[in-house]
Design a binder for these strands. Structure first.
Lengths: 122, 122
DNA sequence: GTCTTTGCTACATTTTATGTAGTAAGCTAC
DNA sequence: GTAGCTTACTACATAAAATGTAGCAAAGAC
């Protein structure tokens, strides 16, 4: 897969707008999951593989290469870690943790309403 | 592709943690782009197709179905639009626009340093 | 030396995405 | 009412990407 870089046309966007490159990158399978799991603390390839349950080494390696080339991840003593830029990006992603709980609640409510409605139809 | 729902195991996560479902959903090809383009204003299928340059109708339709099932998108008079929940999620994504510009700058700086270093090596 | 762990690569299979074509439904204007 | 347009898709063959298993080379422990 070609590397999405700001200023360069990417998959699905010929404009090269930085946001499109970023969304392309983040929208790749497991990229967000890698951010999430690396944010907890730096770790080795194998450990990261474990945290991203069952990710194939092939894909993990591809993603890590992409994330290193785009300055979000670096290799250091303890293994792989987010760069300063990566941490900054993660700060934007972090609130999604709380949001996802709210989302779960709303979906549950919707289901609830549906089954109530079904009851009335009886 | 199976629908990622919070509370239910998803691709790459057997725990069913809501955040994993959300990251699975957002990590699918074009999902983030659809959010971005729909946030500007509601629009028809065709218009959305145009905004997401060259997205295939098959995929667009799949993504729209997923996003409707997960309460982020709804069909209304003017076409497709973000739901209230979708808007809320988009508020978390929006700052990435500014961030991506910063990212572009930092990548440019890195390139700059590299070529300077190459000059010294001559 | 051998044993284990780590960081990968190879590769066949399966899953997704792309791209083109086409269909059915709803206007608009004679 | 029918001819011509637009819209919202679906079908399907091809291409690209992900999965999963196996294995290998290098580094460190003992």
């Amino acid at each position: 897969m070609s590397l999405p870089l700001p200023g360069v046309p990417v998959r699905g966007s010929k404009t090269g707008k930085p946001i499109m490159a970023l969304l392309d990158l983040l929208g790749r399978n497991w990229t967000l999951g890698i951010f999430w799991n690396l944010s907890q603390n730096p770790c080795t390839f194998r450990e990261l593989q474990n945290r991203c349950e069952n990710i194939s080494p092939t894909l993990l390696n591809n993603r890590l290469k992409e994330l290193q080339a785009t300055m979000f991840v670096q290799k250091q003593a303890g293994g792989y870690a987010l760069t300063e830029l990566g941490e900054e990006l993660f700060n934007h992603i972090k609130p999604l943790g709380g949001f996802s709980a709210l989302w779960q609640q709303q979906l549950a409510d919707k289901q609830q309403n549906r089954s109530e409605q079904a009851d009335h139809e009886d």
